[in-house]
Simulated assay, not measured.
Amino acid sequence: MNSRDQSVESADGTRLVVRRLGVGDPVILVHGSGGGLHSWATVAEHLADDHEVWLPARRGYGPSDVPAGAKSFADETADLLAVIEAARQSSNRPVHLVGASYGATLALHTALADPRDVRSLAIFEPPLFAAGAEITPLLDRYRAAFERDDAAAMAAALNDVTRVPAEIVAAIAAGAADRVPDPVEARRSAIGWLHDLEALAQDGTDIARWSAIAVPTLLLAGADTWEPMPTTMDTLARTIPAARYVVWPGQSHFVTMTAPTLVADALRQFFVEASAARPGG
């Protein structure tokens, strides 16, 4: 399906590149750490048959701007609200907001800050455990490795943030085999990770704050994702009033890549239900 890219300007002048495809009720898909315009591509193609899908590249991830200085969730919430406003103006309809991983944490922040144009919220495995003071030394380790362009040391620091089990890290490495990553894309991802860690280090781990979210909410998780994600998601499901909680057997934190049809079908069904529950936003 044909897509088109456009720029959206955030409140502080940061230029965000957004890819759009499809026609219908607007859906914004927010990518996680290390991602970009490509992250939700296959899911977006499935949804674009009956939705207008907006795929923003978050600040710090090219081709969007990489502002100087440290980043916070307040910065990114302002960015996402600018994208929501653009989608609302384009369609004259409220948006379905969807986030995965770090993008799910950002979606939570945004829905809490200003839900007026958010028809529904769907989030997949936000790393709410990876925040606050305990992230600061990992951020420092990562920044030092980034400055000397040490890919192995950067990856080791990130593994300590995400707590991916060693056997999964080894399996991913074996699957990559001898493929050499594109150096431009690798550096783009590394820069984005650095800014994401800055925001996480300034954030907190208090899940109770999300109890104030009142829009129709869908929580998604993979049954095979490692701890502490399952415990985190169980706690979040008890915290957000009336949230639906779906756990997919045989899936993990990579489900948007490994089973995009499953993800798209679950989202489409939820959008229908949410629209019926909250007509017109």
Rank of each mutant, 00 (worst) to 15 (best):
D5I: 08
Q6K: 14
S10K: 04
A11L: 14
R15M: 13
R20S: 10
L21H: 04
P26T: 05
V30I: 15
G34M: 06
G34D: 08
H38S: 15
T42V: 14
V43Y: 01
A44W: 00
Y61P: 01
P63W: 03
D65M: 07
V66T: 15
V66F: 06
K71A: 13
D79G: 05
L80A: 07
I84S: 00
A87F: 01
S90C: 09
L97A: 04
G99D: 04
A100I: 06
Y102C: 07
Y102S: 11
A104E: 01
T105E: 08
L106N: 01
L106H: 03
A107N: 02
T110P: 01
L112E: 07
A113F: 11
A113S: 12
A113Y: 12
R119C: 07
S120C: 05
E125Q: 14
P126N: 05
L128T: 02
A131V: 04
A133F: 08
I135M: 07
P137L: 07
L138A: 09
Y142L: 09
Y142V: 05
E147N: 12
A151F: 11
A155P: 05
A155W: 04
A156R: 08
A156C: 10
D160S: 15
D160H: 12
R163F: 09
I168Q: 10
I168M: 13
I168S: 06
V180M: 10
V180G: 06
V184S: 12
A186E: 10
S189V: 15
H195Q: 15
H195Y: 15
H195L: 15
E198P: 06
Q202M: 12
G204L: 06
D206K: 12
I207P: 02
R209P: 05
R209D: 06
S211L: 04
A212V: 13
I213E: 01
A214E: 08
T217V: 06
D224A: 15
W226K: 03
W226P: 02
E227Q: 15
D234P: 04
A237E: 07
R238L: 14
A242F: 09
R244E: 13
R244D: 14
V247L: 11
W248P: 02
P249Q: 07
S252E: 11
V255N: 01
A259K: 04
A259Q: 07
L267Y: 02
F270M: 02
F270C: 02
F270R: 00
F271E: 00
S275G: 11
A276M: 09
